[in-house]
Amino acid sequence: MIKFSPRLTQKLAWGFTWAMGSVAVLIMLLIVGYVLVQGLPVINLDFLFSSPEGGLAGEGGIFSCIVATLWLIVTTMAILVPLGLGAAIYLSEYAPDNKLTHFIRYSVELLAGIPSIVFGMFGFAVFVLALHFNYSILAGALTLACLLLPFLVRSAEEAMKAVPSSQREAAMALGATRWQTVTRVVIPAALPGITTGIILCVGGAVAESACLYVTMGGSAGMPTSLLSGGRTLAVHVFYLAMETNALDKAMATGAVLIVIIIAINLITRWVSRYLQTRMKGGTSYGV
């Protein structure tokens, strides 16, 4: 084997890491760029505000899909946020260091790894069939809440754990109960992390398709209640791509999704930066 001088080796290694870094960024640019270039020209007001008409040509727009996605996000968050925050509060503030806590933490980790389609199977049999929610937004939202729960618990718990214990002790010393300490000291201080976690879960809900494909049905009609079926934007991309000739519309829907995801990324950055500067600015919270 040829032995290079350390400096040459370093040069080669630098070349390699620069290449890898550029390739990764390039891949992102290619994918995002391709979808946007192909998709954006198709998008117009008519596309955004008319509903899919079905059929092979994939006529119509995506309005009912946008509405279904919004319904789904609101419902999912209504279930997920209290549950996830509650669990995070327990793990971070109340849980004693014992077997049960280890068990809970371990199950959160394991739950996070279970494939979405397995949640889908579960949701299909329990929410769709056994509980008679039928193919519906409610069934989809419940399934999705189970799927996203570990992610929210993890990020919220991390954010709360990062709050210095001196702040809790100060509150307790002033005579606050545990719960008052949590709601008035810990949560406000952990707000940037918690908010970021929630927004990322919204992103996850927008992007998810597998578990919704089997729990919400494919009906592209306008949802009228939580019990009506629906087709989210991501699932609509799947339908358009697999069942119609309208690849341009699939790209356009994909472009809408990518714009939403980019927006969510930017908002997350902005929120955490804004709330952090506010915190550093020494504003007092809540009390």
């Binding site: 069939l129 008679h132 039928n134 193919y135 049905g217 494919g218 339908y239 069942e243």
Partner: peptide
């Protein structure tokens, strides 16, 4: 209207979907 395949139609109808 939802797709899924003929077996989905039969099964779904029987199960009240």
């Amino acid at each position: 209207i939802q797709g899924g395949g003929s077996s989905v139609g039969v099964k779904g109808c029987a199960q009240g979907l």
